[in-house]
């Protein structure tokens, strides 16, 4: 074979190898995190840990039921606020692409997405905690909702823009009013993608700690009330890890494991949905 060709083939092989190795690099931290969490957390992780309330400091045992329920309540509150708002805003952006206001909204959403979560926490403190005079699940939900909002707005917009113009026009040509066309044709056609965006946004905020510190605050007792302080898995991890008790450190590892499994499950669900969308 020609010498030049042989050289090029070798170059190709080296480059391919290099790219493959570099592609594996992002997997390393993830693998290490999962390994570490599994090793440290699995010993304290059992049914009792998931189903019982914390014991007083210094006393062995106890669980994080309050934090698991709390995280669920916070995510539900945040979703109730952010999902309808975000989807409606996303519809607006996709339907009226070229006006001034949509451009402004789009930029605002992108800026909001880059805002540090602790700043959003302070905002929720000023808006909700101060007027109510105490910490509450609602304040935490508002903080998380603000973080979710831009993610939902932008994914909804991106998905709905992909719905063919033809489909919109054929609904309009049947004499269907625009708003019904959007709700009954455009939104259902993009529903899988919108749901994927919502799941990803929930996964994004499930692990947020900073904005909850001075909004939801934490609560060692089981609470479902939006007006009361509430616990959350990231708060438990933060409080336990910074405590002086060895048993709480172990529990912090276990809680981390629970949290990351939850986040992974949400991500996997989003992926599966996205794949179904492509399949159709």
């Amino acid at each position: 074979m020609d010498k030049g060709v042989t050289r090029r083939l070798w170059k190709d092989r080296v480059a391919t190898l290099l790219v493959t190795i570099l592609a594996l690099v992002p997997l390393i931290p993830l693998a290490l995190i999962l390994l570490q969490l599994a090793v440290k957390g699995i010993t304290s992780l059992n049914l009792q840990f998931l189903t019982s309330l914390p014991h007083p400091p210094g006393e062995e045992g106890g669980g994080v039921l309050n934090a698991i329920v709390g995280t669920a309540v916070l995510l539900a509150l945040a979703s109730a606020l952010a999902v309808p708002t975000g989807i409606l805003a996303g519809i607006y952006l996709s339907e009226y692409r070229d006006r001034t206001l949509p451009h402004a909204v789009r930029m605002a959403a992108d800026l909001l997405q880059g805002t540090p979560s602790i700043v959003i926490g302070i905002l929720a403190y000023a808006w909700v905690v101060r007027p109510m005079h105490h910490f509450s699940a609602l304040a935490g939900g508002v903080a998380l909702a603000i973080i979710m909002l831009p993610v939902i707005v932008r994914t909804t917009e991106e998905v709905l823009v992909l719905v063919p113009r033809d489909l919109r026009e054929s609904a309009l040509a049947l004499g269907v009013p625009s708003w019904r066309m959007i709700l009954k044709v455009v939104l259902p056609t993009g529903m899988v993608g919108v749901t994927t965006g919502v799941l990803l946004s929930i996964a994004r905020v499930a692990g947020e700690t900073a904005p909850l510190l001075f909004t939801a605050f934490g609560n060692p007792f089981l609470s479902l009330k939006p007006t009361e302080p509430i616990d959350a898995l990231p708060l438990v991890i933060f409080n336990y890890a910074t405590s002086p008790y060895a048993d709480w450190w172990r529990q912090a590892w276990a809680a981390s494991l629970v949290l990351i499994v939850l986040v992974i499950l949400l991500n996997v669900a989003a992926r599966l949905l996205a794949r179904r969308m492509k399949g159709e």
Partner: peptide, 8 residues
């Protein structure tokens, strides 16, 4: 039936 259904 889309012409009917979509128009409510």
């Amino acid at each position: 039936l889309a012409g009917y259904r979509l128009s409510g």
